[in-house]
Amino acid sequence: MATEREIRLRVRSVRNIQQVTKAQQTISASKMRRAQEAVLASRPFEERLRRVLNDLAPYADPEVSPLLQHRPVRRTLLVLVTSDRGFVGAMNANTVRAALRHAESFPAVSWLAVGRKGIAQLRRFRQGTVAEFSNLGDRPTTADTNPIGAIATDEFLSGRVDEVHLVFTGFVNTMRQVPTVRRILPLVPEEEDLDELPPLQYIFEPDPETVLGAVLPRLIEVTIYQAVLDSLASEHSARLIAMRNATDAASDLIEELTLQANKARQWRITKEMLEIASGAEAMAKG
């Protein structure tokens, strides 16, 4: 059994670690609140834009925009969004695993990595990337994320890939973040919505083609922006939970070790008493 002094030293080191995790937890809590607000605030734009695309569906002819063109799939581009930093539990590992599994269903894949953790993992699995993005910061704007969409669109239009899929950690709530896969190219209007309403007689200005031509690239940009915001909210939520678990575990450990230290102390005192008592007895006899 370790001596009391050793145990007390461990308690002190665990307590130091606990202070760090507790501080991280507080930081994550405030960042999480902001990231969650950002994700929720950005959702209406995408929803409305999709509705506009659905209204445009009757005009959504692949002849008009190459972004709508279906081709036989030979190569797929996977855009993998992860966090830059760790200490987020299994979040990045789960998302990377989902991406790799998704990749197996295609004859060939290219990768575009966003976030340092994903970049490192792809390197480990010897997957080359067409582009890598990191350090988007805690408050990315569309200006930060639009280059991602531009590269993905370029890969698609040049014919180097035939489809583009987005893999990211979808934010559900603080406790739940789910790896999510979405196809972003070619674009398709959602068909179930079309049955609901007969197409309205819309007036287009200047004309359907121009409006469609402006809507489609925007939709790709905003979908990617959303994925980045989702990942960010997931990251901070996951880190908050991970740090809270670590802080709780440290508390348990401190309690456990303190008990051990007290037992060791008690045992030491008892032993000393015994020694004194037996010593005194020996003296009395002699």
Binding site: L56, L200, Y202, I203, E205, V211
Partner: peptide, 19 residues
Amino acid sequence: PGSEGYLGILPHHAPLLTA
């Protein structure tokens, strides 16, 4: 500010989609 010039929208306007 429509792409083709300014336009006013009042209630009961016909469906319109403009840049």
